[in-house]
Amino acid sequence: MEGYKPVILQGQQTNDDEILEKSPPIDASALGGDSSVIIMELLQRFKVRDVMKRKVLSVPRKASLREAQRIMRESRISGLPISEEGRLYGIVSVNDIILALDGGWIEESCEDHMATNLVVLEAGMPLSFALRYFNNYSYGRFPVLDSNRQLVGVISQRDVMRALLYELSVEIRKLERKTAAITGEGEPAHNVNYFRREYAVVRNDLSSAGHAANEIKKLLKEHKVDRVVARRIAVAAYELEINICIHSHGGILTLVIQDDAVTITAKDRGPGIADIEWACRDGTSTANDWIRSLGFGAGMGLSNSKRVSDEFEIKSEVGKYTRVTCVFRLNKQAEGAAQ
């Protein structure tokens, strides 16, 4: 039996906004009508290509349904595009495979049994289009074509959701900062060397965890903070970032660099810690097996952050929030270097 290897296609970033001009205007009612302004704006601002997966598996038309089945099973996907040199010919779905197994035509070629009446999205369309398509059709994903009708990606509801959640957390962060400025928690005017940066941390998004800590480490380097101190700060930032990610409903990591100190603050939106003393003890944790299998959740996060900090404070209210503040004193030498 011939072993077709799936063709892996890497979509190109092309500018095909001209599609927009040919597109009908957005219909707000398709989104439920009462979507908040921020979400509406995000759905407009984002294009399908910003969110879609660019890595697409596909097989040529002559591949057998059995080959398609194997690739779908191995890659755990429920629909396989049939394409040749970027041109999309059809899609074979799990349903087609089941029918073929049942009807005895699993050895026949995809060409003869694939769905050819396809609903596709275009890369330059706003995300609101994608959402409307998901509403109107029962498909879990859509192939994405560029303006030259070349297959450049696949978009699923999950991709849309993830992008929206991430962007929403960024928007919320901006709002919180605005509120903080109004209530006077903002930047003190007398301190000349004051630098503040905030990072949204999303719940359970372990693949992005460490991003903020890494950025912070780079910023500390830019601000010429002593290497050894910078490393301690980065350790605390990473531990706190991971904590927000695996234990909370999400939150914000804040970096403040001043003349004489660097402060890392991690504030989340709950669920809060009932017994802080217990939580800070080395080796105590409420993490689940999944987190532990990745090498976290050993109950060292808070104690690690505490150990590297010069000042450490933790406040929490069950059902509301947890806020951890780590302060790092900058010695004279580092101060001198920063000026």
């Binding site: 965890a209 990473y238 990745l294 090498g295 976290f296 690690n304």
Partner: peptide, 24 residues
């Protein structure tokens, strides 16, 4: 977390953790 807490600059890390967070 143990690596974060106890490993040092310039160490080779011997591990079975083959995922993204190890790099971080």
């Amino acid at each position: 977390s143990d690596v974060m807490g106890h490993s040092g600059e310039g160490a080779v890390l011997i591990t079975i953790q083959n995922h993204l967070n190890t790099i971080a």
